[in-house]
Amino acid sequence: MPRRHAALATLLAVPVLTATLLTLTGCAPTVSLDAAADSNDPGCAEISVRLPDTVADKAERETNAQATGAWGDPAAVLLRCGVPPIGATTKPCITVNGIDWVLMTDLDKDPTAKTLVYQTFGRTPATQVVIDHVSGASDAAVLPEFASAIATIPQTRKCLSTLDTGATPTPAPTK
């Protein structure tokens, strides 16, 4: 009789083990990220619950840090909410679907950079997005995807060009 119970237990364990293995092998591993300093800001929770399931046709991945997101396998797009906001800057700023983004990657130092980092401007908490161009993700396909989530954070400042500030560009020297 005990032999019969052992056989039954083994028989019942096989489907459970098979289901567990299929679940584990069918999922990409968790993306390891560091939470930003202010990731516990309630604004980051507002953004987090509104993040899209796909970005630039890349599926969302699980992350191990609060107020973060990742898309693609391998991860092609990373997001961290709660990074320190930036003040006035001369870095390039673009507005995409009502969200001001500052290009944090210094293309003057590395014009062939394969990974670009953008950060929201004029919103606290600030959000950072890293785009890996090697994966085929483009800024034009990625940044618009976050507009509705980030728009939940009120904008207190806007990017300005030198034309907006009244500054006069320095004339180039003549020969």
Rank of each mutant, 00 (worst) to 15 (best):
Q119N: 09
Q119S: 15
T120K: 11
F121D: 15
F121R: 05
R123C: 09
R123G: 09
T124N: 03
T124M: 10
P125F: 09
P125A: 13
P125I: 12
A126D: 11
A126R: 04
A126I: 04
T127Q: 13
T127E: 09
T127N: 13
Q128L: 05
V129I: 11
V129M: 14
V130T: 11
V130F: 00
I131L: 14
I131Y: 13
I131N: 05
D132A: 13
H133E: 10
V134A: 04
V134E: 05
V134S: 06
S135T: 06
S135G: 08
G136E: 06
G136L: 09
G136Q: 01
G136R: 02
A137V: 13
S138F: 08
D139G: 14
D139H: 05
D139Y: 00
A140V: 10
V142H: 04
V142A: 15
V142M: 05
L143V: 03
L143H: 05
P144D: 13
E145C: 12
F146Q: 10
A147M: 10
A147D: 12
A147R: 05
A147I: 04
S148H: 01
S148T: 02
S148E: 07
A149V: 13
A151C: 08
A151Y: 02
A151G: 09
A151S: 12
I153H: 14
P154N: 00
R157L: 01
R157Y: 06
R157P: 02
K158S: 15
C159Y: 15
C159M: 12
